[in-house]
Amino acid sequence: MSSQAAIVAEIPRLRRYARALTGRSDTADDLVQDTLERALVKWRLWQQGRALRPWLFSIMHNLHVDGQRREGRLDFRDDDDLPVQVQRAAQDDARELRDIERALGLLPLEQREILLLVGLEELSYADVARVLKLPQGTVMSRLSRGRKRFRALLLGATIPQLRVVKK
């Protein structure tokens, strides 16, 4: 396969991940376009022997985080401070799909990314750690918390929150 074909072959995967990450198809394709463009500029830095796909995902991750930061949308609140919204479990399929997208959108970005890279993109934990430049232990703990929270969001249940109440 030529290199042109190799890169074009990655575009559907990049689009799927970007769609799940951003929740909007136009925003997602902008992100894909920026990622391809950045890949062209940065290809000299691409390390020989590194697989193409995780490298492209890492570029996309950096661009997305930069964009969120610029727009002041990065959420630095601690995980436990985030609200878990109550949602009705859906009956029909269309509702269910929408609920999944909505629940995903309510996950903190740091958990959403990992849930998607592991679940949807089926990257190895080691690759996810490389893509996000995190220790693998951090990836695992965020995966664990993300899955708990995702489930809670889908069930519409509230996570019990412990508070110290001063009298």
């Binding site: 575009i11 799927r16 679940g119 995702f150």
Partner: peptide
């Protein structure tokens, strides 16, 4: 959960790629 993610987003793989990306 993983299966539901695939069910929700795998359709993107089959969409035609917008020409601006090709």
């Amino acid at each position: 959960q993983t299966a539901s993610l695939h069910q929700t987003f795998d359709r993107v793989l089959d969409e035609p790629i917008p020409t601006r990306l090709l």
